[in-house]
Design a protein around this nucleic acid. Sequence first.
DNA 1: TTCGCGCGGATTGTCGACAATCTTTTTGCA
DNA 2: TGCAAAAAGATTGTCGACAATCCGCGCGAA
Lengths: 238, 238
Amino acid sequence: MADVTVSQRALGSKDEADPAAEQIARAIEKDIFAGRLKPGEKLGEEELAERFGASRHHVREGLARLILAGIIVKERNKGASVRRFGPDELRQIYEIREILQRQAALRIPLPAEAAAIHRLTLINEEFEAAAKQADFRRIHVLNDRFHTELFGLCDNDLLVSLIKTYMDLTYAVRGAAFANPRNLEKSRTQHRIMIQLLSGSDSWALAQICVDHIQITKDQYLAAIGGPEASRARIGVG
Amino acid sequence: MADVTVSQRALGSKDEADPAAEQIARAIEKDIFAGRLKPGEKLGEEELAERFGASRHHVREGLARLILAGIIVKERNKGASVRRFGPDELRQIYEIREILQRQAALRIPLPAEAAAIHRLTLINEEFEAAAKQADFRRIHVLNDRFHTELFGLCDNDLLVSLIKTYMDLTYAVRGAAFANPRNLEKSRTQHRIMIQLLSGSDSWALAQICVDHIQITKDQYLAAIGGPEASRARIGVG
DNA sequence: TTCGCGCGGATTGTCGACAATCTTTTTGCA
DNA sequence: TGCAAAAAGATTGTCGACAATCCGCGCGAA
């Protein structure tokens, strides 16, 4: 309808301009999400250029995107490194995630149509299968797809993109969370409840569980790095 | 407290890396916000390089940031141009602004401390002075500062940055809105009410007026480009 | 006259090399 | 032996030139 497709990534409509840089950016993203690159780790330009068989120019371009996305940081003349989150930064990020996910959930028309529920059911079954096999790569992908599909039911693509951006920001964190079988089980259960709620008409319940859902990884990370703050993590607007 | 300063611009911590590119980006931003560059207008690289006395390389870098910020768009081999918003895109952007501003307002501790209220009062007085003189440049700057200061009272810098990012996205729109004296008067009045509410303890009223506040420019723009949709613009989560 | 084709100018994308800056090692002096 | 300063090495930042692509103009044929 509009003269330009709306919001491919967060808000920057990058289309598929500079595919090389985009490809490199995605690859680095993957490495970070998979835990192969840990927070604080250095990212040398030439090293990456060699690894991807691309010129340093494209590597720089790719890094620039990840910097703007907030996934990595760069100091002048000192190179790029995977971003390391402090407790306060993480608190802020999760607060934003809570806001966005709650509001997006509230905007999903209930009951949702059967086709959508079916799609989510299939994704979640795959998710559970991946969980059984402890296939962390697929777990991430499917978890991501589940939430994208779920929030995609609200009629605001830009909002969905924004949610995804902030989900990506915390992917490095979530790697550790999914390694814990108890958390994985909890995620699974909550996904199933979400699907059930889509058949009903209680938007508030759906919104609440979407918020509760991210507490798992939040508490996990705060406990890991912050220590005592984890118990103080009950803020929420109520 | 944290090991890295949090959230300078949206979420990308660009620090002051590459000052030339940043300067160029800001200058172009200004031109767009001031209405000197209209939506859809082409931005030639060499032309900009000459105007800023910089190399084309830095111009490209600056443009890249504005693209990621969503203010301009670029098609491969066809150059950059000021982003033109369709009715649906704008609806989505404003919905996000409503969400963010409402939630930020709800998180401002009330009553606010006297010093903060004093600062806002001063800014608004300047704003009103600029409005009297029809100094659109200062009107924009002061309106921006007012809202940054206001939302800055919630303890989530990242959220404030995010709000600012989406405010910037609609600056081109708002130029037209502020040209209308009636709208300007309405803005002024609402600012004063916001300041009053900061002394009280009714967070909901504050949140509501922060949402109402942006309806002015939203309706204006929709009426200008969309036509009949303007009346349908009453959504809100209720 | 009008439509299609091809050429030329202009603009953007890509690359390699050089300059600036930081880090590490080594060397010299106390 | 320990510390400081300087040089060597490595890494990032910047630039100019060349290649690829697109847009508009002119030419020719139906």
